[in-house]
Design a protein around this nucleic acid. Structure first.
Length: 224
DNA sequence: GCGACAG
DNA sequence: ATCTTGTCGC
């Protein structure tokens, strides 16, 4: 799969924030989905003390969640970690990994926020807009917003609020585990994002297989 | 001015 | 994120 929108990545943090404010208008917060046959999970890791960014993608058939394809790509790390600008550090490698897939997924789950972001344009929204594909933000920790702790029951969730605005949900994928921060990425409403996250992440199949793709990449010096 | 801060 | 020692809670 290839982006439908291109833009430079070698930007200053100030320029990157300006670009986010322009692209944020393209985010669609309602469902615009076709039949889901394949779901991709993408995750990023670093090598060589952070000088190299490695992205791994895992495609699962839906709803069986059987692994059907993986890909890996490496890029020189060319942007610092700045809270709110993570996409400029990680998306170049993510796009390269996704470009190597033969299968075009109908949905992408991202390790990062969607609109639960200071400018409502986190990594998942950014990726969705560039590819014009439905995406969901599923982050392990909070970037912005306040919330109550969800009940310790599988499927329980509480709204993630920025003042009175609901920007996401804190979702308990399993009893006894830390909740995940779910937010709209692109072309899915929050309700759908929560449901699909539970369907794909409840038994940790997606993160598991994505990590597996990373392991393949680590074991082999070349790409998998 | 002082905290907070996806990965 | 990644690296890594010691500590806390179930």
């Amino acid at each position: 799969m290839q982006p439908v929108i291109e833009h430079p990545w070698q930007l200053t943090p100030a320029e990157a924030a300006v670009l986010q404010n322009e692209l944020r208008q393209r985010v669609e917060r309602n469902d615009r989905l076709q039949a889901i046959r394949h779901v991709a999970g993408v995750d990023v890791g670093y090598e060589a003390g952070g000088r190299v960014t490695r992205a791994a993608a895992a495609v699962l058939a839906y709803p069986s969640l059987q692994l059907v394809e993986t890909s890996v790509a490496r890029c020189p790390t060319s942007f610092p970690y700045v809270p709110g600008l993570l996409a400029f550090r990680e998306l170049p490698a993510v796009l390269a990994a996704l470009a190597r897939l033969k299968i075009t997924p109908d949905l992408i789950l991202c390790d990062g926020q969607g609109i639960a972001h200071p400018r409502r344009f986190g990594l998942a929204s950014h990726l969705g807009v560039l590819l014009d594909v439905p995406t969901i933000g599923a982050a392990k920790t909070r970037l912005t917003g306040h919330h109550d702790e969800p009940p310790n029951v599988k499927g329980a969730w509480t709204p993630l609020l920025d003042d009175a605005e609901t920007i996401g949900a804190v979702v308990r994928t399993r009893a006894g585990v830390k909740p995940v921060y779910v937010s709209i990425g692109h072309r899915v409403c929050l309700k759908t994002a929560i449901e699909l996250t539970l369907a794909c992440v409840t038994c940790y199949r997606l993160p598991e297989t994505t990590r597996h793709a990373h392991h393949l990449a680590s074991a082999k010096k070349d790409d998998a």
